[in-house]
Nucleic acid binder design. Structure first.
Lengths: 215, 215
DNA sequence: TATCACGGACGGACCAGTCCGTCCATTTAA
DNA sequence: TTAAATGGACGGACTGGTCCGTCCGTGATA
């Protein structure tokens, strides 16, 4: 994923410019559809220069998905700062997650490319980072359980289930256009939360789903 | 999606053979990676023959995704036959859904191609069929609500949320290989069900998630 | 002048869709 | 019943175009 460097001196600004245009171009045209020449043109460099900073087209692609992973990570965990309570934190993370992809659909396109084209394979670094994010979410759940706000669920499985829900809602929602993604996500997360909340917590603060019973 | 026919006589068997090999090849190599020549070779016909049965490579691709949609539909709704109760039916459909893609990963690859490459666009027929499936699931939820087994949730939104969960669990699960897909799906659906079950139904038949409280 | 980052022309591989000659099944004529 | 004629389904060579990765000439810098 990293630039292979060798002995040449590299300009981080130029590297970043190429990366940024790669995100844009891969998202628009897909991995195969994206001509490296276009990325070079957009970044204002020659094609040879692209190959100086990145070993191959594939390498460049991995660098872009890694970059987006980092951005998603920052975005989601920043959104949880200052929020109190496990349920509220989870909801905040879900909202941030869906906004991340709705605000910039290129990111979603890139992730889908990754999965569709490369079956989510990719360098070890990607896997490691993913594992780190899963772990962080797991800890958050654990705190919620210890605080009595959540039932004692399996934290890893629950994290993966929540991740699946968010990914599915975002991917399907964005593409099938059956309903606004943000609303869809919030609704789905509410159901999910009601499913993992402790009964005590449920009585204390009924979810919006409960309210619909009045209808 | 349909073969454009014109005035030539067509052999349904040959069409089916081409379609079958197209599923296989698109799944293995992706839309762009799949050479029509390979599909032709595998189906035991000439390349020209492929273009006799399908207007273009894209047309052939739509025909394959439509075919898979039909199979998924049959598979899921067949699994619900003879099952009593809304929750049990939903669980059965979820299990069938995940099995459909786990048993034949080509189907998942095809769907992901569809979303990644074509942004879920595609002929009107696809949209219509999808809408029909959503409607059928919605009716099922409605029956569960009327029977008092489920809380009075919005059936369409809930269907979409469940669909998102299933899709996400299958797609992420299959590719990230973090956990067996079937187990992941069952777990996620249990959480989901607990979130939409009526309290009465919950007391009567505690979900497996409840049991984990004993730990 | 020597060094080196850089750009872009180029080689070669690959592929969608077309088009024409072949071959087979069916029909007509003897 | 056999032989010739006809039409159209079929195969695959071919064309026009695309795109990856390399390599070499150029211009900036020290």
């Amino acid at each position: 994923m990293a630039s292979q460097n060798g002995s040449c001196s590299e300009d981080p600004g130029k590297r970043q410019a190429i990366l940024e245009q790669a995100i844009r171009t891969f998202a628009e045209l897909g991995f195969r559809g994206a001509d490296v020449q276009i990325i070079a043109d957009r970044a204002g460099v020659g094609k040879g220069t692209v190959y100086r900073y990145f070993k191959s087209k594939g390498d460049l692609f991995w660098a872009t998905t890694y970059e987006v992973m980092l951005r998603l990570d920052r975005h989601v965990f920043q959104a949880m700062e200052g929020v109190e309570g496990a349920c509220a934190k989870l909801r905040a993370s879900a909202v941030a997650y869906s906004h991340f992809f709705v605000d910039d659909p290129r990111y979603l396109a890139l992730f889908l490319q990754d999965i569709a084209e490369f079956r989510g394979s990719g360098p070890e670094s990607h896997r490691e980072h993913r594992e780190k994010m899963i772990h962080k979410m797991g800890e958050l759940l654990q705190q919620g359980i210890e605080a009595g706000e959540l039932r004692p669920v399996d934290t890893r499985q629950t994290t993966l289930a929540l991740g699946s829900l968010l990914f599915g809602a975002t991917a399907l929602g964005s593409h099938l256009k059956l309903m606004p993604v943000a609303r869809m996500t919030e609704y789905a997360v509410d159901i999910f939360l009601r499913g993992i909340r402790s009964d005590v917590s449920l009585e204390a603060e009924p979810s919006c789903l409960m309210e619909s019973r009045k209808q």
